[in-house]
Design a protein around this nucleic acid. Structure first.
Lengths: 266, 266
DNA sequence: GAACCGTGGGTAGCATGTCACCCACCGGCG
DNA sequence: CGCCGGTGGGTGACATGCTACCCACGGTTC
């Protein structure tokens, strides 16, 4: 449709460039919309898959060849990622993946707390009956995904529920901001824990929240949201700590420390 | 240096393209850094100067000709503006200035309230002595600019003070977010009111805030920040209302209405 | 007179050419 | 043996060519 399959030189097998790596950042498989968006998705996948790592330097040309597109959409997508703080450019040297530190994660969740706790309160107050029905539907979708053990679907339903509550609070700016913050944290790893027990627990954490909103209990909704975000934060901070090779026996202690420092007062 | 002065076709005097306008979006005068950044600044100037308006459709080619650069940096700058929600692209049709509605302004200030009120509290608690000195210095800079009647400098000092407090609260993510939000509202009009009495008033509004922080009074700092943001919000909402040709005698009433609806609960 | 359809101009998106700049490497000089 | 300036490859930024696509306009048909 949009992209006539050019012959394209590609890269034979050299990948000689000075400090560059012989990684294969995954080609454009997803046929979504613009190529720039597909590039962003591909880079994200490459990071979570471990094909691109924080230390190395990469270049636009390199990615363009590997993905079999021209430099323009690659550059465009990378600039967007850079603006979001996910990669960093070194002039005339290349770009580098920015490591998301545990502190960053804690700060992001603190910001989300500041935005979503009042939003839950407002949602409990302002929501129309048919909107409450949508909340219930989204909640049931989350439980359904949890029962099926589908982590990805559960994560999506989770995100949808949060977005819906922000929407019901009537602040579309906050919706956009939280969406962007979520993108950053999701660069950590697509799904939180591997198998543990989080699926059921995740769904259950929302129970109190949804019930409070449906009952229009503002205080309870706010409290439930705060607790849920705190639990999420600790999961993600712990994951970021492990990604930085923190000693496993100190993860719990460090997690509490980092989160408390970032969240106190919000 | 970089841009050999092309002959450039420009648009003689026709401006035939379907819905496009005969506006002259201002050329690149500021020699800052990348052309894309200069384009963003130029577009912003053109909007605040009334040379570009929300209804019309514009094209990359059009701006590129008018500014005597190629389409690449123009496109890049516009894409960044689009990501910030300030313009909207219509595929194969052009792009359009997004009108910042009074509701949007109120929502943005509500978000800032959610972020900056706790930040003021944390700053009062966490700031080191030498950091308090920087707060005092920034405050004095604000008063100096106010005394000199320099609106632009006062606005910048205002922004610097807010950024500093967010920084002292130890949340760099929030710093970035607020910076971005401020960019959006600043698209309304560079300086708030024309001459009124806002310079002195603006500086005085910060007095209680700064004093509370310096005295490490957390509750007072939070309260002062809340009041200050509410006052700012009402100014900006009123300005957005006037930009939408709201009847002057109803501006005060509508302002209070819009702000109360957006801010309640934050 | 009104609905329909071909056509042409204009646009965004992508591909590619080009250039100044920067850094790493290296060979000669002290 | 260590410093130092030349040099070449690689990169980001910009300029420009190309193409599918969309919409408005005008002529044709009923």
């Amino acid at each position: 449709m949009t992209a006539p399959p050019r012959s394209v030189a590609g890269s034979p097998a050299d990948s000689r460039p000075g400090a560059a790596a012989p990684s294969l950042p995954s080609v454009t498989a997803t046929t979504g919309s613009s190529l720039a968006v597909q590039v962003m998705a591909a880079v994200r996948r490459a990071i979570t898959a471990g094909e691109m790592e924080p230390g190395r330097l990469y270049s636009v040309q390199q990615l363009a060849s590997a993905m079999d597109v021209s430099r323009s959409p690659v550059r465009e997508g990378l600039l967007r990622l850079g603006e979001a703080g996910l990669i960093r450019f070194h002039r005339n040297r290349g770009f580098e993946i920015v490591e998301v530190s545990p502190t960053d994660v804690a700060e992001i969740l603190a910001v989300r707390t500041a935005l979503e706790v009042p939003a839950a309160r407002r949602a409990a107050r302002l929501a129309q009956p048919e909107e409450l029905g949508r909340v219930r539907a989204q909640w049931e979708a989350l439980h359904g995904a949890a029962r099926a053990g589908d982590l990805e679907a559960a994560a999506e339903a989770d995100a949808g529920l949060h977005r819906l509550l922000l929407l019901l609070a009537g602040n579309s700016q906050a919706v956009q901001l939280v969406e962007r913050l979520r993108t950053t944290t999701s660069f950590l790893g697509v799904v939180a824990a591997p198998s543990r027990r989080p699926v059921g627990e995740l769904a259950r954490e929302h129970d109190a929240l949804v019930r409070a909103v449906l009952a229009r209990d503002e205080a309870a909704a706010a409290g439930a949201m705060r607790e849920h975000l705190a639990a999420t934060a600790q999961r993600l901070v712990a994951q970021a700590l492990r990604a930085q090779r923190a000693p496993e026996e100190r993860v719990d202690e460090l997690t509490a420390q980092v989160w408390d420092a970032a969240a106190a007062g919000y």
